[in-house]
Structures are given as C-alpha cells and as structure tokens.
Amino acid sequence: MKSGNFSPEWASLNNTERSVISKYHQTAPIQVGKIAKELGASVKSATLKAGISGEIKETDGQILIRINRHDSKPRQRFTLAHEIGHMLLHRDRIGDGIVDDILYRSSLSDTLEAQANRLAADILMPYHLTMEKLHEYEDIVDEERKYESVARDLEVSTTALKIRLGKL
C-alpha cells in the first residue's frame, strides 16, 4: 500500500468529502450506499446490458448511479464505490453519462478509470480496518483462506483485496 495508507485520489478530495466517507470507516462492511446518498447521489439497482456493471449520469445537477443488479454483491459494491470515484474526481466529465463495463473501462482514459478504482479501494477497504480484519484472522496459515475471510467481512472480492494490499 502507498505511504499514508491512502491513494493520491483520496488526498485530492476536499475535507467535507473525506469527512463524509471517513465517518463510515469505523465498521465493516463499509456502508457504500449511505456514502453515495450523503454525497448527493441517487443509486438505483437496474438491469443493464450484458457486460455493463454500472453507469453514472448527471441531469439538472442531480447525479444518478445505476448498478447492474445481476452482478455479485461484492461487484455491485465496488462498482458503486467506483462510480462515487467518478462523481468526486471527474464530475466535469460525466456529462450525459459514463458507462463502465465489467473491467471498469469506459469512454474515459485508462488513467481516469484507474483513479476511480483507487478511490473505490480507499472507500471500501480503509487501511486501518483492512489491517484489523487481517489481524483477526492471523491464526489462518493458508494465505488464500485468510484473504477470502477478510474479503467476505469487507464484502469485496478477494481480487480487489489483494490489489489493495499490493499482492497482485
């Protein structure tokens, strides 16, 4: 993980945005839906086209995030956090909408998508809580089982957790 335990994207948020997110960083799993709502977004579960995980659009100043209801719960949660990332980092680029496929690719550059992914990881897997969970499972010798247990508690995929921890 990066020095300071958060990404540069986290550091770029204003104090109010960081404060809203941080107040939900006390217990797992992070209540990402409440974060979105408090930041001013409406979130809808929807049947999206095959291969589409989420989309975000702004109409008359109101942000609407739609999440594919057919995706697994960990994927839905990461997608929502990813779209929150776009809302906070790239609001000026949302326009008529950003549609993210299952690999979190959109019409935006790979750089902007990576920024949204890093902020999503900060939102869903705050360092202190992730380390606390790893400590809870320190008796599990099999690293894969340990990561699976922590990922289950955080309601994220094992892959997302490993990326967050720098293991992938």
Rank of each mutant, 00 (worst) to 15 (best):
M1N: 01
K2W: 07
G4M: 06
G4C: 03
N5C: 03
E9H: 08
A11C: 09
S12L: 07
N14L: 05
N14G: 11
N15E: 11
V20Y: 12
I21A: 05
S22R: 15
S22C: 13
T27A: 05
A28W: 12
P29Y: 11
I30M: 02
G33Q: 06
I35W: 07
A36T: 04
V43G: 01
A46H: 02
K49I: 03
I52V: 15
S53T: 14
G54R: 15
K57C: 02
D60T: 03
G61N: 14
G61Y: 14
R66G: 00
N68Y: 14
K73D: 05
T79L: 01
T79A: 04
T79S: 05
L80T: 04
A81T: 05
G85V: 06
L88T: 04
L89F: 10
H90N: 13
R91Y: 15
R91W: 12
D92N: 15
G95H: 08
I102T: 15
T111Y: 12
T111I: 04
L112A: 05
E113Q: 15
A114W: 14
A116I: 07
A116G: 09
N117G: 04
N117Y: 05
N117L: 01
L119M: 06
A120P: 12
D122G: 11
L124A: 00
L124M: 10
L124T: 00
Y127R: 08
Y127C: 03
H128F: 08
E136H: 09
D139G: 04
V141L: 13
D142H: 06
E143P: 02
K146T: 08
E148L: 03
R152N: 04
L154Y: 09
E155N: 08
E155M: 11
V156S: 00
S157N: 04
T159D: 08
R164D: 11
L165D: 08
G166P: 11
